[in-house]
């Protein structure tokens, strides 16, 4: 065996060495480019920032310290502030919930239109895919600002903006889920003469609903963050309260602290809740089936 392959062995060796050199070169170049990009990018960002990185670094705790110390001296007010900010928090959560519900509903429709084997009009699959890509690409703030101009401030523009993006984002994930669904039940239903909505409802939904739900829950958590941030640019809710509280500056920091606390706890709560529920959905629970 060795005799036979003497000549090819040299070729293998030469080829592998060439490959190694090329790989080292590419690897080296890529690493270098990455390091350069990071370094120069940081330099540019630093230059274009109002305050520099190094001068700002010692002051990084100034503001939190200010807020905390003021909140501490006026800690008696804190429960009141928390209670006052609660309606705004509820509004923020409502915005996220409505946006997620509507977004998920339309995402389900679009995702079915965009999945091979499910689509009622298979020729339009690429069209629906593009539509979802486009909807996903629109940042919430764009729609929110335009709608605030037309509809005035408040929760509705934010909810619509977030829902719009959610349709695209969830639609893509849902259609990935749909693609992995078993087509046999659908064929079975088709053979007994079920129409499209029946086929989807009875053949597809039971298979994919847990996955859909899990993604929608994850999205809900992301949407709460988005809803808070949109409030900051004028769409109401806790973000708006936060903006007001901090723009008053010193003297109102106790209110700001209340909002910070509320927002932090809310996000952590929904973050933990969604990952807990999703874990249960994917791995099942120890006591699930028995009871």
């Amino acid at each position: 065996m060795a005799d036979l392959s003497a000549a090819p062995l040299d070729a293998t060796r030469a080829h592998y060495l060439a490959l190694t050199r090329q790989r080292r070169l590419y690897g080296g170049i890529m690493l270098l480019v990455f390091v350069l990009l990071m370094a120069s990018g940081f330099g540019i960002a630093n230059d274009r920032n109002a305050g520099g990185f190094l001068p700002g670094l010692p002051h990084i705790f100034d503001f939190p310290a200010g807020v905390i110390s003021e909140a501490w001296t006026k800690r008696a007010n804190l429960p009141d502030h928390l209670r006052n900010a609660l309606p705004a928090l509820v509004e923020t959560i409502n915005i996220a919930a409505v946006a997620t519900l509507f977004g998920a509903f339309f995402a389900i429709l679009l995702s079915m239109f965009a999945t091979r084997g499910l689509a009622p009009w298979p020729r339009l699959i690429p069209v629906f895919r593009r539509i979802m890509d486009l909807m996903r690409a629109v940042p919430e703030i764009v729609i929110a600002l335009v709608l605030i101009f037309v509809l005035g401030g408040g929760p509705v523009p934010a909810a619509i903006a977030i829902a719009f993006h959610t349709v695209g984002a969830l639609g893509k994930l849902f259609s990935e889920v749909n693609e992995n669904a078993d087509q046999k039940p659908l064929e079975g239903l088709a053979s007994v003469g079920a129409i499209w909505p029946q086929r989807m409802l009875l053949g597809l939904v039971p298979q994919v609903a847990p996955n859909w739900f899990s993604y929608a829950l994850l999205r809900f958590e992301i949407n709460i963050r988005a809803s808070a941030i949109l409030g900051f640019v004028g769409a109401g809710g806790i973000g708006y309260e936060l903006k007001n509280a901090i723009s008053w500056g010193q003297g109102k920091f106790d209110e700001a602290a209340a909002v910070f606390i509320l927002l932090f706890l809310t996000i952590v709560f929904f973050d933990q809740l969604s990952s807990y529920v999703r874990n249960r959905l994917t791995y099942g629970s120890d006591k699930g089936a028995g009871k």
Binding site: P8, L9, T12, Y16, T20
Partner: peptide
């Protein structure tokens, strides 16, 4: 080192799988 690479390919050859080196 290049010598290690050569040796590795020789060993693979000894075990009859040098053609799969890459």
């Amino acid at each position: 080192p290049e010598s290690d690479i050569h040796q590795a390919i020789d060993i693979l050859d000894r075990l009859g799988i040098a053609q799969h080196a890459e």
